[in-house]
C-alpha cells in the first residue's frame, strides 16, 4: 500500500481533519473547564461555598465538583460514540478503496 496515495485520498483527509477537530476541541474544553474550576477555587472560594438552597448544607461547590467529574465522563463517551460510528466508517471506506 502506498502511503502517499492514501494521504492524498479525500477520505483520509476527511478522517484526519475530523478526528483532529474533535480531539483538540474536546481537549481544550476539558482543560478550560478544569482550570476555570481550579482558579475559582484559588480566587473565589466563597462562590463555591454558597448553599444550593437557603437553609440547606449542600453547596454549589459539591454540585459543580460532581458535575465536572460527570462532564469528563460525558465528553469521553461522546468522543467514543463519534469515533465508533463516524471514524471507523471512514477507516472502513479507506480500507475498501485501497485493497
Amino acid at each position: 500500500m502506498d502511503p502517499q496515495a492514501i494521504q492524498n485520498s479525500p477520505v483520509f483527509r476527511q478522517l484526519v481533519s475530523e478526528r483532529a477537530r474533535l480531539g483538540v476541541g474536546m481537549s481544550i474544553v476539558m482543560t478550560v473547564a478544569y482550570f476555570a474550576y481550579i482558579l475559582t477555587v484559588a480566587f473565589w472560594p466563597r462562590l463555591l461555598g454558597h448553599p444550593l438552597w437557603s437553609g440547606g448544607v449542600m453547596t454549589w461547590g459539591v454540585l459543580i465538583g460532581v458535575g465536572l467529574i460527570a462532564f469528563g465522563f460525558l465528553l469521553t463517551a461522546l468522543y467514543v460514540r463519534r469515533a465508533n460510528s463516524r471514524f471507523d466508517r471512514l477507516s472502513q471506506l479507506l480500507l475498501e478503496d485501497f485493497r
Binding site: L22, G23, V24, M26, S27, M30, T31, Y34, I69, G72, F73, L75, T76, Y79, V80
Partner: peptide
C-alpha cells in the same frame, strides 16, 4: 480524573 479523557482525545 481530568487526565483520563485527555489520553483518549490526544
Amino acid at each position: 480524573l481530568v487526565g483520563f479523557p485527555m489520553i483518549l482525545f490526544l
